[in-house]
Amino acid sequence: MAALRMTISCVILLQVLSCLLSSFAPTNVQGLKVGFYDKACPKAELIVKKFVFEAMKKDPTLGAPLLRLFFHDCFVRGCEGSVLLELKNKKDEKNAMPNLSLRGFEIIDNAKAALEKECPGIVSCSDVLAIVARDAMVALNGPSWEVETGRRDGLVTNMYEALSNLPSPLSNISSLITRFHSKGLDKKDLVVLSGKGHCPQIRNRLYNFTGKGDSDPNLDTKYAAKLRNKCKPTDNTMALEMDPGSFKTFDVSYFKRVSQRRGLFQSDAALLDNQETKSYLLKQMNSDGSTFFKDFGVSMVKMGRIGVLTGKVGQVRKKCRMVN
């Protein structure tokens, strides 16, 4: 399902977001709390906000990618910053196929560098990711929520774990529900956190859905034609908007598009295959998203608790791209 979903060209339900059970299980949240840095680094969240808002002012399309960074981090090893690490052999999460289109890493680096000057060795990279995701949404006039902090950074990154843990855009509803449930997330979280992509992720849906050169019959024919015009059979780079025309805003038009069979991924269309996910989706569409902002904040807090490292486990990296 590509990742979060936000109609910001790709997400919230658009370019919104494992820890493999046990060491990655969505349990232990002891040590997380709102205001964790109030005494040790009181300006921490203000410093991060400054870098996010400056970057978003220059490029509003960064909102979805920044949200997606947090989602892709939390679903692999938990919310412990492994998506930021780089290995010399390139076998890191960054180089896994689902993560090749991730961007916004420099904003994390810049915010972290400023935090190291303000209060060295105090604020973790994983907490920076969590704060950045919230501030990116606020910069788009989207929802805000209180971010729990106190995470520590992990020491491991593995390309193959990203491949096996991130929800696939080809997933059916049963697979999606199971994957989200393994992270401590329910069906409402699934709908709230669903979405963006690139041409390779939907090529099969457009050109060879059943192996006979056909397209997915669950995809609106006019929308499919537009996508084929953008995505040629050999195109590996074109980025696609979940909600064309609204990539600089945070809204609920995604729900309408899915109900019209214009969801970008098979995993979007799958939301209509379960009564509970379909009911929530249609409720938000018909009520103009009256509870979506609140629900989104709740789901983000829940996701931010997946597989966290706290206390003396892990470390606070000095630079987010490498272990100390």
Rank of each mutant, 00 (worst) to 15 (best):
M285C: 01
M56S: 02
D220C: 01
K88M: 14
D109T: 04
F70P: 02
S290V: 10
K312P: 02
V308H: 14
L32F: 10
F255S: 03
R262C: 03
A64Q: 09
L32Y: 05
N110W: 10
T27M: 14
G213V: 03
K278Y: 07
P120S: 14
A44N: 06
D214S: 07
L176W: 03
V323W: 11
G154I: 01
F70N: 15
E161N: 09
T27D: 14
R205K: 09
V313A: 10
E54K: 15
M1A: 15
V16K: 12
I306C: 08
I131M: 02
T277A: 00
K90M: 05
T277C: 01
L62E: 03
K50Y: 10
V156R: 14
F51T: 02
G63W: 13
V313L: 09
L140Q: 05
T149W: 02
R257Q: 08
P120V: 08
F70Q: 15
F70E: 15
N324T: 10
P169I: 06
D59R: 02
F247L: 11
C231F: 06
K39F: 14
T249V: 06
E161M: 06
V128R: 02
R68D: 13
V316H: 06
K302C: 03
L140G: 00
M322D: 12
L46D: 15
L84D: 00
E148D: 04
V132S: 09
D127A: 01
K256T: 14
L170Q: 10
K283M: 00
G195I: 11
G154D: 12
F53I: 12
Q284W: 07
R77D: 10
F75I: 08
V16M: 10
G104T: 12
V83M: 12
Y254T: 06
N172Q: 09
N110F: 13
L115W: 05
V252D: 07
P169C: 02
T277V: 01
K302Q: 14
N218I: 01
G195A: 15
V76G: 04
E118C: 05
R262Y: 03
C74A: 15
T178Q: 12
R257C: 03
E276V: 06
R134L: 04
L4E: 13
K319M: 06
D214W: 12
E148P: 00
P233I: 01
P120F: 10
L115Y: 06
L32V: 00
I122K: 09
V76W: 05
S267T: 07
N158C: 11
M137Q: 15
N286Q: 08
L309V: 04
V313N: 11
F296L: 11
K33C: 01
N286M: 00
G195W: 15
P65S: 02
F180K: 05
K222A: 15
V16L: 14
E54I: 09
H181P: 00
A239F: 08
S22R: 13
A114N: 04
D268V: 05
Q315L: 04
K312H: 07
Q275T: 07
K302N: 13
T178H: 00
A3E: 11
A269N: 09
P143W: 05
N172G: 15
M137Y: 09
L166F: 07
A136K: 12
I306R: 13
V147N: 05
S194E: 09
S18G: 12
V313Y: 10
A269Q: 13
G81I: 06
